[in-house]
């Protein structure tokens, strides 16, 4: 929200009445920028290699094994990250696995954002029994231990990427709904929303044109944090055998198959784990950075 600079000055917090100024604001804002730029750049590079690089250059297929090239160590010629016990190129499996992770994360967040966001907005804006009914439905979802619920859904739908997306959406929709509802409750009684209503604007227009744009920063930062979690959960589902079925390359599958060799070839587990965790951390840092930058609570 925009407050004129002069107002911000006159309303400095109480600590300033007597206390010190604390760390320089300039240093802090530098740090904050780095917090967004570094993970953002890393993610862009990874996205480029996962989605665009394979189109430009030939890389070995992730699902065609080269039986003469098994168990190659890292940095082997032609196989930068080596090959695994079956002869798959690890690098290529990492890149294709990354695709799956990003696709699932994006789809789950998009579904959560649209469905959950609308749910939460409508519930909070309408209030009364609409809110009671909608939130009760979501409470049912939230009441289940989330992973158990996801496992149950994945199990009954059978393993496939689409099913993983549905299963994980059961988790993201209520989360987004909660965030959207809380934010809408804060905005709902703001004079500008009341003013829009009084000037005769219809409810759906208020929802889409006044509320949604003002919720956007908050929901977007939340979706980055959510994506960071989704990637881990997707890995976990694959690992447990409820996710994308092998031989499709995913980070979770790579960790699952690699674990039988962990004492001899620890890199089969370590390499995908590093990618999994690093991506998740980058998304999380970016979400946090943007949240601080945009002043979202």
């Amino acid at each position: 929200m925009s407050v004129p600079a002069a107002d911000l000055l006159t309303t400095a917090p109480a600590q300033d009445v007597l206390g010190g100024v604390g760390a320089g604001p300039r240093v802090r804002s530098r740090l904050r920028n780095l917090e967004i730029i570094v993970p953002g750049a890393l993610l862009v590079v990874l996205l480029f290699f996962c989605f665009i690089w394979p189109l430009l250059y030939h890389i070995p297929s992730p699902t065609v094994a080269d039986l003469f090239e098994v168990n190659r160590p890292l940095w082997s010629p032609g196989h930068i990250l080596g090959t695994d016990a079956v002869g798959y190129d690890v690098m290529s499996r990492i890149l294709y696995g990354g695709r799956v992770s990003f696709e699932v994360a994006a789809a789950v967040q998009a579904i959560g954002l649209v469905v959950g966001g609308l749910f939460g907005m409508i519930a909070a804006y309408r209030g009364g029994w609409t809110e009671a009914v909608l939130m009760r439905i979501l409470d049912v979802f939230i009441a289940f231990p989330s992973l158990v619920l996801v496992l149950a859904i994945a199990d009954s739908l059978g393993p496939s990427e689409t099913h993983v997306i549905w299963a994980l959406s059961a988790f993201s929709i209520p989360a987004f709904a909660r965030v959207a509802r809380a934010a809408t409750l804060r905005l709902r009684d703001q004079p500008f929303i009341v003013a829009a209503r009084l000037s005769g604007t219809r409810t759906w227009r208020i929802l889409l044109q006044h509320l949604a744009p003002n919720l956007a920063p908050q929901l977007l930062t939340f979706s980055l944090l959510g994506a960071s979690l989704t990637i881990i959960l997707e890995g976990a589902l694959d690992f447990l055998g409820y996710g994308v079925p092998p031989p499709t390359a995913t980070w979770g599958n790579m960790i699952a198959t690699g674990q039988s060799f962990i004492s001899v070839y620890p890199q089969y587990v370590l390499v995908p784990s590093v990618f999994l965790v690093a991506t998740s951390i980058c998304l999380n840092m970016m979400g946090d950075g943007l949240r601080a930058r945009w002043g979202v609570r």
């Binding site: 929200m1 925009s2 407050v3 004129p4 703001q190 004079p191 500008f192 929303i193 009341v194 003013a195 829009a196 000037s199 005769g200 604007t201 219809r202 227009r205 006044h210 744009p213 003002n214």
Partner: peptide, 25 residues
């Protein structure tokens, strides 16, 4: 309303804000 800043949607332009009631009716 009392507070001119909070009674206008911060993401809308002046023209759009003034036009809103006309659109609504």
């Amino acid at each position: 309303f009392q507070d001119p800043f909070t009674s206008l949607d911060p993401r809308w332009t002046v023209t759009r804000l003034v036009e809103e009631p006309l659109v609504a009716y």
